[in-house]
């Protein structure tokens, strides 16, 4: 009898409603899973043109690029698609420039991503403390994101110049010993680039984290306070763990950006920044468009693409699994 009662409880319309209603939507089927043949046909004009453009320009081009990387195409003339070879990939390991720029790319990726996240989180926590003029502060921190890398590279070239703001400020406070030739000294080149890129991107991290912070209900702060947590504990144990998805989203964006960071370095140093600051994106351009080593450039682009895939792939997959698509 108990089991019967239990099974009937499920049917009790009073206990059922509110919470069950979304479930019913699911059980009664995806609302749009109604494939009406005519709807599909009618919807084609809406998505097909854009889809074709994307398939051609993005995926078609990627495939084409892979194909080119298997040819030995260089110089003037056209690629020969009849003779595929792995030669381009074979020569990579021995290419000192390639190895240096791969190393620099990974260093840039790791340092830029982690520092940007930390600075962005710090900014978000500062801005989130019910401050006055919050909008103004936010606007200033995010401003660099609205600027072109060409613009920021020009600003920072001047910042880093021997008589630029950084060195003159250091001199003014008696730290002349720390005034270096930031963009000329191989020891600092990459770090200088990373610092400037962090400057440009930390505001982005800030707003991602702010959005995450704002989505945490006030109850959590209040509950933690009633539990007697100090501010530090509150953030460390309650708030920051809830920013996980913000962190993942921002990390993917930053890492993918780091892979293709081209404009900034190109404008600062031209197409050959030297071993200490060369990255794959620049090497690729130099090989293909400056040296006309098209196939080799394409092969480096394939490596870049593969690196990006290792970052995007898992992200897109988890998004898909979570039904976020």
């Amino acid at each position: 009898m108990d089991s019967l009662r239990n099974s009937l409880q499920r049917l009790d319309p009073r206990s059922g409603h509110g919470a069950d209603e979304p479930v019913s939507r699911e059980r009664e089927g995806n609302r749009f899973a109604q494939l009406r043949g005519s709807d599909f046909v009618e919807s084609i004009p809406f998505w097909l043109p854009a889809t074709l453009l994307v398939l051609l320009f993005v995926y078609g081009a990627i495939g084409w690029n892979v194909a080119i990387s298997f040819t030995g195409w260089s110089g003037l003339g056209q690629p020969d698609y009849t003779n595929f070879t792995l030669e381009m990939y074979r020569q990579m390991p021995a290419d000192q420039n390639f190895r240096a720029s791969l190393r620099n790319t990974v260093a840039l990726l790791v340092a830029f991503t982690s520092v940007s996240l930390v600075v962005g989180l710090g900014l978000a926590l500062l801005v989130d403390r019910k401050i006055r003029f919050e909008n103004t502060f936010r606007t200033i921190y995010l401003l660099p994101m609205a600027l072109s890398f060409v613009v920021t590279a020009i600003f920072w070239s001047w910042m880093y110049a021997s008589d630029g703001l950084i060195n003159t400020t250091l001199a003014a406070v008696g730290l002349e010993a720390l005034a270096f030739d930031w963009l000329g000294d191989p020891r600092f080149k990459l770090a200088a680039v990373i610092f400037a890129l962090v400057w440009q991107f930390s505001g982005y991290c800030m707003i991602v984290y702010l959005a995450g912070l704002r989505s945490i209900p006030d109850d959590h702060y209040e509950a933690a306070r009633i539990d007697g947590a100090s501010t530090l504990t509150l953030y460390r144990r309650v708030i920051i763990p809830q920013l996980r998805s913000s962190t993942i989203g921002a990390t993917v964006v930053l890492m993918v950006f780091a892979l293709k960071a081209f404009d900034f370095i190109y404008v600062m140093f031209g197409d050959n920044p030297g071993r200490s600051a060369d990255i794959l994106a620049v090497t690729m351009y130099r090989q293909a468009f400056s040296a006309s080593e098209w196939a080799y450039g394409a092969a480096i682009a394939v490596v870049l693409f593969a690196l990006a895939l290792t970052i995007i792939g898992p992200y897109a997959y988890t998004q898909y699994k979570r039904g976020a698509l």
Binding site: F57, V58, G60, A61, I62, W64, N65, I68, V252, V253, V256, L259, K260, F262, L280, A281, M284, Y285, A288, F289, W294, G297, A298, I300, A301, V302, L304, F305, A308, I311, I312
Partner: peptide, 11 residues
């Protein structure tokens, strides 16, 4: 998210 370098030559 695709790095545009991967399409430059074909483009």
């Amino acid at each position: 998210f695709i790095p545009y370098q991967a399409v430059l030559v074909p483009l």
